[in-house]
Design a protein around this nucleic acid. Structure first.
Length: 426
RNA sequence: GGAGAGGUGGCUGAGCGGCCGAAAGCGGCGGUCUUGAAAACCGUUGAGGGUUUAUCCCCUCCCAGGGUUCGAAUCCCUGCCUCUCCGCCA
């Protein structure tokens, strides 16, 4: 949610910024609504004040043993007026909330203009794209060859867009997850975190998935409304919802591995082959809660932490700054890390690192206490995949394949694989 | 799943339908004292919002949502959560 004060003081700026998101914000409609809100709110509060004063007077008169009937006659009808005013206020506030919560975050000045992923800007490349002197296989074929990746059986158990992993391939994914968790916890200073995989609507509202993106979620319960998490971002960031964090606890840095569940409604026909786009996948997520003045630096650091995993795995990747049209709803600025996938002969997203500034914090009512002023201030929240484990599995399999169809194990993963250096065909 | 108890400020914990945004203690902050610190003493200290240049003033919030009332932390209803006991259970 954007700052309402910004709308009142700098409406034209807001309008211009939303235009970058291809949103035609109706300033006249807003101004009219805001003026009505102001009038109704002032009126309501005046009536409330009148009621409070009258009631107090009645109380005092009663204490003195005076006749209160004249006073009671005086307030007759006030209740009805107040009810009308309060109802009106509630309505217009709800209307404004609907309007406001449908608006995306304001983009950082550095975000390039553009319509879609084709307009994203490459920042850097790392590593050498491997050259193979044999006919390479993609992860689906490799997985089948190793009898470790079975889409058919998952379809039988559940439906399309699920997978069953077995043997060394399953272990390799687990090794990747453990390696990532250990690296972020031990080297990058994140607190390992475990959270529920099912969340309530308030949490999804807090991080911005609701009310706008309900179609992307799996709902598992009605009354109360509960959903499977689409990312660990939701439960982990919501740890600070409605909290005022002591300054000594700042910055809050958490790392968390969870499965993620996405209905991917409307994504059919897009990238269907293999593990790339699934209803359920494993991800290690980095979340930071920082002071406003530190979020831009934290964004760079968090992205570096994710990059560090790719470097340690010696997987070639590139870093991309998303353009205005491709940056997510809640984000001010997002870097994507794209890993090289030989099977697709291209770079594919494996991490997305975003700075939400105070957009989520305002919805979450997540604050920290500034010792200099003694007052609570909204925090800035950030998160990034560190990394998507399923896609990392794909990347390792495809980049480390050998002519025999074996898969070499990156050195950093070997301790997690019982010391073996290669997964051989049995 | 069954039975009971309870949800009040950063924490502990009082609170009769009006004098309660709320005692007291702890903690925090400022000060006195001290070479410094501790102790003691004094003062101060919740959040959100409206109006305003600002001060002032006003509104809302005692788990959440409804209700009763001129007036609700306090009474009533519903929900959620926590704790204790029993049952079941990885």
């Amino acid at each position: 949610m954007l700052d309402p004060h910004l709308f009142r003081s700098e409406l034209e700026f807001v309008q211009a910024q939303l235009k970058r998101r291809a949103i035609d914000f109706d300033a006249d409609f807003y101004t009219d609504l805001e003026n009505r809100r102001k009038a109704i709110q002032v009126k309501t509060q005046e009536l409330q004040n009148e009621r409070n004063l009258s009631s107090k007077a009645i109380g005092q008169a009663k204490a003195k043993g005076e006749d209160v009937q004249p006073l009671l006659d005086q307030v007759q009808g006030l209740g009805e007026q107040l009810k009308v005013a309060e109802t009106g206020l509630t309505q217009i506030q709800a209307q404004m909330k609907d309007l406001m919560e449908g608006l995306p975050n304001i983009l950082d000045a550095a975000v390039p203009e553009g319509n879609d992923e084709d307009d994203n800007v490459e920042i850097s490349r790392w590593g050498e794209v491997p050259e193979f002197d044999f006919e390479i296989k993609d992860h689906v074929d490799l997985g089948a060859l190793h009898k470790g990746m079975d889409f058919e059986v998952a379809a039988k158990i559940t439906s399309a867009r699920f997978v069953a992993l077995k043997g060394s391939i399953a272990r390799l994914q687990r090794a990747i997850i453990q390696f990532m968790l250990d690296t972020h916890a031990d080297e990058h200073g994140y607190a390992e975190t475990y959270v529920p995989y099912i969340v309530n609507a308030d949490s999804l509202y807090g991080t911005g998935q609701l009310p706008k993106f309900a179609d992307d979620l799996f709902k598992v319960s009605v009354d109360p409304d509960l959903y499977l998490i689409p990312t660990a971002e939701v439960p982990v960031t919501n740890i600070v919802r409605n909290e005022i964090i002591d300054h000594a606890q700042m910055p809050v840095k958490m790392v968390c591995h969870t499965p993620c569940f996405r209905s991917e409604a409307g994504a059919y026909g897009k990238d269907v082959r293999g593990l790339i786009r699934q209803h359920q996948f494993e991800k290690v997520e980095l979340v930071q809660v920082v002071k406003a003045s530190e979020s831009e630096q934290a964004h760079e650091e968090l992205t570096n932490h994710a990059e560090n995993i790719l470097k340690k795995l010696k997987l070639p990747y590139r870093k991309v700054l998303l353009c205005s049209g491709d940056t997510g709803f809640s984000s001010t600025k997002t870097y994507d890390l794209e890993v090289w996938l030989p099977g697709q002969d291209t770079y594919r997203e494996i991490s997305s690192c975003s700075n939400f500034k105070d957009f989520q914090a305002r919805r979450l009512k997540a604050r920290w206490r500034n010792p200099e002023t003694g007052k609570p201030e909204l925090v800035h929240t950030l998160n990034g995949s560190g990394l998507a484990a399923g896609r990392t599995l794909v990347a390792v399999m495809e980049n480390y394949q050998t002519t025999e169809g074996n898969i070499n194990i990156p050195e950093v993963l070997q301790p997690y694989m019982g010391g073996i250096k290669v997964v051989k065909l049995s």
